[in-house]
Design a protein around this nucleic acid. Structure first.
Lengths: 261, 261
DNA sequence: TAGCACGTGTGGTCAGACCACAGGAGGGAG
DNA sequence: CTCCCTCCTGTGGTCTGACCACACGTGCTA
């Protein structure tokens, strides 16, 4: 042995597909332990290194968690944490120029505006306590920009989580990771951080307020303006991010009032 | 050697971070060739298998393309094809129950409605020729459901591409992949395929028509209804996809006419 | 009975060896 | 001089075997 017999597909792909199939069949469920690497490779007739390559992919994608040692917590365990995989994907794609930053911002605009609107419309009012906590934490007067930004990201994510849509939550986590580097850089472009953070805090509360008031249109437009405003300030005029400006995206409810009056 | 000295982070992660850093620094750009696996591992002081694990991750994430042999086309080459990675991620997350199908559909609703609206509002009218071609192809009377569905997916993707937002395009490709299996299964749940496909064709043309007429609100609502309608038909009442029905999401412009009259 | 030492299995990593393949360099035939 | 064929080289792809660090369980010991 030692080589691919030409007609066979890549060995690691075999492993990946095998596990995917078992997941689809229900033979493998979240919380379950995968066979050990040695067993898995023997079972599928591939080398351990090939099996490991597949497991590595699953790990980065957020499907499994691995731990050495013995006992029930060791080995590869199925977990579905899409956020991690999404973050890695977005981050690397941005690094490789596959995702223009402007497109990420535009996508945030769409997703978050929609989330805010849905939250306001939610029949049984969504639980915003997590967001409230973050809002309070952000009021600490002596927060470094980095800390503030982390709380800010967590706040936006908390809204997504409150909406209950796991796909959007994971996507937003990924989008945020993708532009995290730029966000940190951007802080230096802000003239008066104190004023900016105060404004951001006010806008955050305004969004939550609109959601609580079940005013979807306002929640949407405030979210849109909040995000586009921040990026307009962070990425001054000639940001080499892409051909068009992030704020160019017409939001579903930004300039269109359609107020509930 | 042969083992991790406990304090060191995982070797493959070292490789991954090294490459990411080079991408961020601009030392590595799309189209460039990575060092060979042997050189890379030597350079970073890790084993070749560890370097390979990192490369495998990059490959699945759509960042590199690998080819054996020699010459300029061999080796690992930086490519930024987010769609592939996104598809793998979504597909596996769905398989692992990390992404409820209902959430994926809801996300499609948001993204595609928004795309259709933006397309209609686009200052220089977007190029819809690719979508037109697919529309014509879908008119072939003797298309198998599978073929029709493939064209249908391509049509929706073409609209996203026309919008020029690469993040949305890749995300939509991923979302589609995630529910592809369910879509194929769902065909059998459709009583009169001929009638359904005719309806879908009509709806598609209606969407494009609204976009061409620069009627954003109609484009949005038609897109929303098109998608939610299809899934309502494909996943009859008691689909075990999630706690709430996909159509429960209030679209920005679905039931709210705000017609241009 | 309480505590500790050892065995065992797991992931993590490395080193070395082949294979298949694609391309280029070189020599030989025309 | 030109063209074609052959061999060589480098690349990814894979397998095997080995060792390390670690966490757990078992069972012996005090």
């Amino acid at each position: 042995m030692g080589a691919a017999t030409s007609d066979a597909p890549r060995a690691w792909r075999t492993v990946l597909e095998h596990i995917e199939q078992q997941l689809l069949d229900g033979a493998l469920r979240p919380g379950d332990r995968l066979p050990g690497e040695r067993a898995l490779s023997a079972e599928l007739g591939v080398g351990r290194s090939s099996a490991r390559e597949a497991l590595r992919v699953l790990e980065v994608l957020g499907l499994i968690r691995t731990a050495a040692g013995s006992g029930p917590n060791s080995g590869a365990i199925i977990i579905a944490t899409p956020g991690g995989g999404m973050s890695a994907l977005m981050r690397l794609q941005v690094a490789a120029s596959g995702f223009p930053v402007a497109d990420i911002v535009r996508t945030r605009l769409i997703l978050e505006s929609s989330v805010a609107g849905d939250l306001a419309d939610a029949a049984p009012a969504a639980d915003l306590s997590a967001a409230d906590l973050l809002l309070d934490a952000m009021d600490s007067p002596d927060l470094a920009p980095t800390e503030f930004l982390a709380l800010d990201a967590a706040f936006h994510l908390a809204l997504a989580e409150a909406s209950g849509n796991q796909v959007i939550t994971a996507t937003m986590a990924g989008l945020r990771s993708g532009i995290e580097g730029y966000a940190l850089e951007g802080v230096s472009a802000i003239a008066d951080w104190s004023a900016t953070s105060t404004r951001l805090r006010t806008e955050h509360r305004g969004i939550v307020e609109a959601i609580r008031a079940a005013d979807a249109a306002t929640a949407r437009s405030r979210t849109h303006d909040h995000i586009s405003g921040y990026y307009a300030e962070t990425f001054p005029p000639s940001s080499p991010s892409g051909p068009s400006a992030p704020t160019a995206t017409p939001s579903p409810a930004s300039t269109t009032p359609e107020s509930p009056a």
